[in-house]
Amino acid sequence: KVTYHVPNEEFARKLYKKAVDANLNVEIRVENGQFIIHIE
């Protein structure tokens, strides 16, 4: 399980798409202006 803290929405979207394309379980949320992405 990996967690990324991404300040940039564009990068967060790319990361999310890559994980989904790889059939990984992804959860994304915004906290204090940062995008928190959990990948399992």
Rank of each mutant, 00 (worst) to 15 (best):
E10I: 06
R13C: 15
F35E: 00
L15D: 06
E40M: 13
R29W: 13
V6H: 04
T3G: 04
N25R: 12
N32F: 11
Q34R: 08
R29V: 10
I28N: 00
H5E: 08
A22S: 07
E9D: 05
P7T: 15
F35C: 04
T3I: 13
I39V: 05
L15P: 01
K14T: 07
V30E: 11
V6Q: 03
T3A: 06
K17S: 04
Y16D: 04
R29N: 04
E9V: 04
Q34P: 01
H5F: 12
I37E: 00
E40H: 09
H38F: 13
E31I: 11
K1E: 07
I28Q: 00
I39L: 03
A22V: 09
Y16N: 02
A22I: 14
Y4V: 13
A19Q: 02
A19S: 02
V20A: 05
D21E: 13
E10W: 06
K1S: 12
V6A: 10
K18M: 14
V2M: 09
N23R: 05
K14L: 11
D21I: 09
N25H: 14
V26F: 06
K18N: 10
R29A: 04
E31W: 07
I28K: 00
Y16Q: 08
D21S: 10
Y16I: 13
N8M: 11
R29K: 06
D21V: 10
E9K: 04
I36L: 04
I39Y: 02
N25V: 12
N23T: 08
I28E: 00
L24S: 01
F11A: 14
L24P: 00
T3V: 12
Q34E: 10
N32H: 07
I39Q: 01
D21G: 06
K1V: 09
V6M: 06
V2C: 15
Y16P: 03
L24E: 01
N32Q: 04
N32Y: 06
K18T: 10
V20E: 03
F11I: 14
Y4L: 14
I28L: 11
F35R: 00
K1T: 09
K18C: 15
K1G: 14
E40A: 09
K1W: 15
V2Q: 08
L15V: 07
V30Q: 07
K18H: 09
K17N: 09
F11V: 13
V20R: 10
F11S: 10
P7W: 15
